[in-house]
Design a protein around this nucleic acid. Structure first.
Lengths: 190, 190
DNA sequence: ACCGGAAGTTAACCTGGGTGAACGAATGAC
DNA sequence: GTCATTCGTTCACCCAGGTTAACTTCCGGT
């Protein structure tokens, strides 16, 4: 769990005993490609730290899947909208590649807050971070036209282009695969 | 500042001395209708608690104003995307009615976190709250078609319908005033 | 009573994504 | 080698919001 502890130490100080506490509060979870960390309708019971792998976070809107974002190594992933109030989730989180996660339950997170001296501070900083990136994602989704979002995706995730099918990219851009084809043609042709 | 302290006490316990600390960390700001709490391009230096009034939070996207949400009595308002990293804001926050705010600077908020025993906890809970409602707003903006968003607005803010011009509602729904007219006609006619 | 501006409506036309279907290429199973 | 599946592309058609502009209504100022 060194990668996790290293990530936490970028925000707060941890004593050696606290390193141990954290190791006990988190558990390891291997998720094969295609499996779900969180399924729609279920309650998000854990926050996950991605040690290795790639996940996508999406909403199923009447059979229309819309990918909000992709999450990778050294990022925390969770549907806070389900996790914080412990209510059923309207989103799903799926592994796109074989992934190794370190997960912490809601109850253990409360222990983390109370047992780790700067735990509350870390909780605040972590959620601020998640909050900012979520807002930025959604802002872009709201503001930027599909063609621009596609080009932003290409520059932001150049490696993913080769690793995931194009319909996931379309889903991320917010359009149908056919429309993405049109846009690609428009961009290429002129 | 009773309304503010009452709102904080709904989340954490405050000693009488802490009541005083808070009164000193916040300052009062009266904002006439039309004036700005935050202007695009400037850094958001304060978090505001709305004692009285109505504000709108919007982004100017190439002359196209898009209202993200309206904020009213007993709510906190702030562009955290500008406030937390102390970077220039791409959003504006404008008073739609004469408003009275209690505001706290970034520096004083850090003092709040350190001087008030459960300050960090409050910071975490407050940002969780803001985070959840922001995500819900943006989710809806992303997922729901304009006609539905308009009807949701009518049920969520029945009083605002009478108090604000229709082009602000259109801006909130995510369309032009002309299109809102069409939708209203469609809904009415059949 | 008159004028001017702001707000809302209507209409004609444009644009871009959705829909459904057909097609081609690549992949994998047997 | 053959067949089926999956994925991407292309096309014709549809629809809803954007654009532009004209028109009405309402209100305030004088």
């Amino acid at each position: 769990m060194e990668s996790l502890i290293r990530a936490i130490k970028e925000c707060i100080h941890l004593s050696p005993e606290e390193d141990n506490i954290i190791s006990e509060l988190f558990t390891e979870l291997d998720l094969p490609a295609g499996d779900y960390f969180l399924e729609e309708g279920k309650i998000c019971r854990h926050v996950a730290f991605i040690h290795k792998g790639l996940l996508r976070y999406y909403i199923n809107d009447n059979g229309n899947e819309r990918t909000m974002f992709f999450s990778r190594e050294n990022e925390f992933v969770c549907n806070y909208l389900s996790f914080l109030p412990q209510r059923p989730s309207d989103k799903s989180i799926q592994a796109l590649e074989d992934s190794r996660l370190y997960i912490i339950s809601y109850e253990n997170l409360q222990r983390f807050y109370s047992k780790v001296k700067e735990g509350e501070k870390f909780g605040r900083l972590a959620i601020e971070q998640v909050f900012l990136s979520a807002i930025q994602q959604l802002d872009s989704l709201y503001t930027d036209p599909p063609a621009l979002r596609y080009q932003q995706f290409l520059t932001a995730y150049p490696d993913l282009v080769q690793r995931i099918p194009q319909y996931y990219i379309a889903s991320y851009v917010g359009i149908k695969p056919q429309s993405l084809s049109r846009i690609r043609k428009r961009i290429a042709g002129g």
